[in-house]
Design a protein around this nucleic acid. Sequence first.
DNA 1: TCCGGTTTGTTGCACATGCAACATAATGCG
DNA 2: CGCATTATGTTGCATGTGCAACAAACCGGA
Lengths: 142, 142
Amino acid sequence: MQQLSKTGERAWIALLRVAPHLMETVEAALKAEGFPPLAWYDVLWELERAGAPLRQRDLGERLLVARYNLSRLLDRLETDRLIERQPCVDDARGFMLSITRAGKALRQKMWPVYAEAIAAALDRKLTTAEADTLAKLLDKLR
Amino acid sequence: MQQLSKTGERAWIALLRVAPHLMETVEAALKAEGFPPLAWYDVLWELERAGAPLRQRDLGERLLVARYNLSRLLDRLETDRLIERQPCVDDARGFMLSITRAGKALRQKMWPVYAEAIAAALDRKLTTAEADTLAKLLDKLR
DNA sequence: TCCGGTTTGTTGCACATGCAACATAATGCG
DNA sequence: CGCATTATGTTGCATGTGCAACAAACCGGA
């Protein structure tokens, strides 16, 4: 009684090998330019495009990051004054997160390097149609 | 002059979110049954299907794992007597790696749990054609 | 043959992560 | 209301990972 198809297995292995490898490559590109890790960019970008302050819980949900991980990641960003934590009015447990001016500036400086790394690692290796298909397939796995 | 397409960016973000999440899910399934991490299975399986002893270098290449990471991963597997390191005849620096009987037994016991986790996280969410496409697209990114 | 450069593998150290336990606040049910 | 349950966020501890430096062996050209 095998409940796993051979094709599914191949897709899994490809994912297992390729995804971490790509992430390391992009991470290395950022580090090579003296920038902080990918995760920092992610937080900054999500906060910036949210427009309004976000609950820590909601940010974690969007980034698919565990609470205890996010908690300490945000500590580091806050220490560098890239984000701010304000007490939450509705819920005394939570915090409202917002990106600072310095945070926006850093994100903007990082973007060209990040974009070039993504282009090299992914974009230039796929046609537009292929990239679109890939995105759609991955989204089905959420 | 943006060298990164919008579609490529979407694919990247999907990969960044989905892949780690899937890995954590599968990892959790193994842990829940008292089994060692995914990486252990990977090593055991690669050694078993290789049929013959493998150089550490070659294993690292197939698994896309960094040398210093692999080195310590293998230490742990060796401590548990799941693999063996034999001095390499051709090259006094290297080792030949082989899976032990206990290693094969463990891998076999892990497989049903692993397969079920992959089926739940990936296989059942895609048609066969989709899984095939996904595997092919990811392979293009190596 | 000799010697510089490369390849292979390991390790000390700092840092990041997972887990379990915790503190505090909100929620909901009797 | 009162109290158990759930939700949110933090932290101590053990473990895993990245980096840089290292040791040892191999390779190849002069």
